[in-house]
Design a protein around this nucleic acid. Structure first.
Length: 415
RNA sequence: GGAGAGGUGACCGAGCUGGCUGAAGGUGCUCGCCUGCUAAGCGAGUGUGGGGGUCAUACUUCACCGAGGGUUCGAAUCCCUCCCUCUCCGCCA
């Protein structure tokens, strides 16, 4: 969420940002509601102050045995008027709040402006595309030969968009998760969290999935709860509504979770095999940091994720997202795309974002700084990394001519 | 699911026979004093959010005592609904 004061004073900046993000939030409506809210509230505050003042006199007058029936009568009218004003104010306030929750975060200054991923900026790459002396198969073909996956049977259970990992194939998936968690714990000094995979509405609002992206979330009607689309949600909201001390930060967490996404409106788009699933596993990094550090930390997190891909010996490239490709809540995002030689394309396996104070404001994540002032934290998160597409890259990169695969040494202890 | 207890400021904890309570006391924190250093001690200050006001302070006002309603001139205090925590019982693993 953006600060209403900031919007009030920088309306044009915000409007440009909204446009660059291909969003349609109505800033004029917000300004109007803000104005209206302040007027109504001022009226309420003034009358209420008067009411309190007079109310305080009543017991004193009574003590002096004076007649207060006139005052009481007059106060009754004031009370009625106050009731009206207060419900008016809260109605406006509510509407304003709902509108504010729909305003996207402002892209950071150096983010390339552009309407979609075609404007993304290449940052760097690592390794190179593996060369084969035979025609490399795609991951589905490899998986079939190895009997790692069974989509026919998973669809019997849950329809399309779900995977069944079988035998050594299931083990490889689990190996990846454990390897990545251990790697971050040992080499990057993260603290592991294992949190609920089902969260309430407030948590989803806190990280910015709601209200805009509700259609893409799995909702449990009976309890008004949601299956998490990423561990970012429970982990980031972990300290919601608290005021930490500057001594308590930075926080550095890594968490494994399954991720549930309805992927509404993405039919047929790169959905083959493991590419796009309604349920997949991911190891997520989350940082809660002092505002002055967040951009340095962003760079660090990209490298934390890169180290994983490097350890697996997979060729990848890093791109910086253009404004139009940034997510709703993000101010700046890097993607890591791994090379899948069988499919002959790069697959996004990690998205690392700085949200600045956007999520912190929604979830009320604050800290008391050295100067005693209460400030919003900056939040960041990044995949470290998502398993299905890493799985694809592994199968395709390490396949042998005879159809078997030879996985990197570093995974061996987990297999 | 049933019975009981409870949810108050960064934290702990009073108040809960309605007005003098934004809220005692303590801890923590900040500043000062004291101390050879450390610890202890002494003094002062210290809630969050919004509005008005100011160059900025000052000042002023409103909201907030789990959430939402209600009663009342006036509610942390009374009533209703819901949520959460703890203890016991039941149920399932």
């Amino acid at each position: 969420m953006l600060d209403i004061k900031f919007i009030r004073e920088n309306a044009e900046v915000v409007k440009t940002a909204v446009k660059n993000k291909n969003d349609n939030a109505d800033i004029n409506l917000i300004l109007e509601l803000d104005e209206k809210k302040r007027t109504t509230q001022y009226e309420y505050d003034t009358l209420r102050a008067e009411q309190k003042k007079i109310s305080k006199q009543i017991p004193i007058l009574k003590k002096e045995k004076k007649d207060v029936s006139d005052i009481l009568k007059q106060m009754k009218d004031a009370a009625q008027k106050l009731k009206e004003l207060s419900s008016q104010t809260s109605a406006i306030e509510n509407q304003l709040h709902q509108e504010l929750l729909r305003v996207p975060n402002i892209p950071a200054e150096n983010v390339p402006v552009g309407k979609d991923e075609s404007s993304n900026r290449f940052v760097r790459e690592w390794g190179e595309k593996r060369k084969f002396d035979f025609e490399p198969k795609d991951h589905l073909a490899v998986a079939e030969k190895m009997q790692y996956l069974d989509f026919k049977r998973s669809s019997k259970l849950s329809g399309s968009g779900f995977a069944a990992y079988v035998g050594a194939g299931a083990r490889l998936e689990r190996a990846l998760i454990n390897f990545m968690l251990d790697f971050h714990l040992k080499n990057h000094d993260y603290k592991e969290l294992s949190l609920p995979f089902i969260v309430n509405r407030q948590a989803m609002v806190g990280t910015g999935q709601l209200p805009k992206l509700e259609d893409d979330m799995y909702h449990i009607n009976e309890d008004d709860m949601f299956l998490i689309p990423t561990a970012e949600v429970p982990v980031t909201n972990y300290f919601a509504d608290e005021i930490l001390s500057y001594k308590d930060i930075p926080k550095k967490f890594v968490a494994y979770s399954p991720c549930f996404r309805r992927e509404a409106g993405s039919y047929g788009k790169d959905t083959k095999g493991l590419q796009r699933l309604h349920q997949f596993n991911k190891v997520e990094m989350v940082r809660l940091v002092h505002p002055k550090d967040s951009y340095a930390v962003l760079e660090e997190m990209v490298q934390d994720a890169e180290h994983i891909v490097q350890a697996l010996g997979l060729h990848y490239r890093v791109v910086e997202l253009a404004t139009g490709d940034l997510s709703f809540a993000s101010a700046k995002t890097y993607d890591i795309e791994v090379w899948a030689p069988g499919s002959q394309k790069y697959l996004e396996i990690s998205s690392i974002s700085n949200f600045e104070d956007f999520q912190a404001r929604r979830a009320s994540l604050r800290f008391r700084d050295e100067d005693e002032k209460v400030k919003y934290l900056h939040t960041l998160n990044g995949s470290g990394v998502a398993t299905p597409r890493t799985y694809i890259a592994l199968l395709e990169t390490y396949q042998l001519k005879d159809g078997r695969i030879e996985l990197p040494e570093i995974l061996q202890p987990y297999l």
